[in-house]
Simulated assay, not measured.
Amino acid sequence: MTASSEPLRIAFSPCPNDTFVFDAWVHGRVPGAPALDVTFADIDITNGMAERGEFDVLKVSYAVLPYVLDEYALLPSGGALGRGCGPLVLTREPGARGTPLLERGRELGGLTGKSVAVPSERSTAYLLFRLWAADTVPGGVGEIVVMPFHEIMPAVRDGRVDAGLVIHEARFTYQNYGLHKLADMGEHWEDTTGLPIPLGAIIAKRSLGADTLKLLAESARTSVLAAWDDPEASRPYVMEHAQEMDPAVADQHIGLYVNEFTAGLGEDGYAAVRGLLTRAAAEGLVPPLGPNALAFP
């Protein structure tokens, strides 16, 4: 595969972290990288694309990996892991500050039997939520309501659901809706594992061959490094697709989700992915991984 070959079909979200990561590659500033034919789609859509075997390269939730790794390989660069960047559970009423999560959850009925809006049941956010609930919500939550993530905070504010699981820039804007943070799924994950939070993965079709997969991984890494070297170069592309997001919020978004693990998963990154999917499989949330499922050519 060379840069002059037929463009590879890639799908990723219009969120600032993805456009920041891929800007240099998309615009031909990564020497030797394959050309890309970009489709923008929210991660719940790209998860479905991966399960149907569509597109050559996709940004997906780590939670979907157990369903797609026969056809796709996990690339070690370009994805999103981090610390202090996990999904939040929001409610209309504040929890008692300074109390342990378990006690705070009990004060609010532990969410036992309560309705919770989530952006997807095939998302890392949902897996982290279910692992948190298994530890802190005696009796388990009630109805799970799937809705687009931008509708979740209004639904909690308006009392249509008891709580909401939010992601992305909602970390910075939920107080504008008069909502309160009940718990941070990332804090729970980090406190119980010591590992970074696995969020979004870059996958590519195994049928492209080992040499092309290695080239894709190196192209993603080079694109990340180029974005760090000259952040202003990516700003027009980021803001064009940021859905009227305030530039300061876009910068916060990039700062949280583009980090050392985006350049390369490394030992801790791979341990985090294995840990999440192993624990989720033990809870019956996903199928178990094969022994070499995460291996990269």
Rank of each mutant, 00 (worst) to 15 (best):
F12G: 05
F149S: 13
K181D: 11
R274L: 10
P87H: 03
I254N: 05
L81P: 02
L285M: 09
D135M: 15
N47I: 06
M1C: 11
P16G: 04
P198H: 00
A242K: 04
D162H: 12
K114N: 08
A281Q: 09
L36Y: 09
I144A: 01
L36N: 09
V146N: 02
G200N: 15
G266K: 00
H253Y: 07
I43Q: 15
D18F: 06
R122Y: 05
T2P: 10
G159T: 08
F22N: 11
S223Y: 11
E6I: 12
S4K: 12
A73N: 06
V116M: 06
L208T: 06
G109S: 01
T212N: 11
L111T: 10
G98S: 01
F20E: 12
A242W: 00
V68S: 05
G28I: 10
K214F: 06
G95L: 15
Q175V: 15
G32M: 02
E54P: 13
I45N: 15
V68P: 00
G53W: 07
D56T: 04
L277E: 02
R92W: 03
A133P: 07
Y126D: 03
V21I: 13
C15Q: 13
H253V: 05
P14Q: 05
F261R: 02
K114W: 01
P288W: 02
G269S: 07
Q252C: 11
E71M: 12
D70H: 14
M245K: 10
A281L: 04
A263H: 08
V146T: 10
I144F: 03
D44P: 12
G82C: 12
D162Y: 06
K214Y: 11
L75W: 04
K214V: 15
L69D: 11
S123T: 05
P287G: 00
S115C: 03
V145C: 01
I10T: 07
E121N: 11
A280V: 09
L65C: 08
E240R: 06
E103L: 13
F40G: 03
E260K: 14
D184Q: 04
T39V: 14
P154V: 03
L199W: 06
P76R: 09
L131T: 05
T112M: 10
P247H: 00
N47E: 10
I202K: 14
R171W: 12
N292A: 14
P236E: 03
T99V: 15
V38Q: 03
G113W: 02
R235V: 03
T136H: 15
A227H: 07
V146F: 03
A263N: 12
W189I: 03
G105A: 15
L36F: 06
T39A: 14
D135Q: 15
L225G: 04
W25A: 08
L36A: 09
A227S: 12
Q252A: 09
L90I: 09
M153W: 04
G48Y: 11
M185D: 07
L213F: 02
A183S: 11
P154Q: 02
R157H: 08
A33T: 07
A35V: 14
R279E: 14
E103W: 10
P119H: 05
P16Y: 01
T173M: 05
A226K: 07
P76S: 06
T124P: 01
D23G: 10
D251Q: 10
V286S: 00
V21T: 13
S115Y: 01
V145I: 10
V286K: 02
G110A: 11
G105K: 15
Y237L: 12
A33F: 05
V224H: 02
H188I: 13
L127C: 07
T136A: 15
D44I: 09
I45E: 14
P119M: 07
W228H: 08
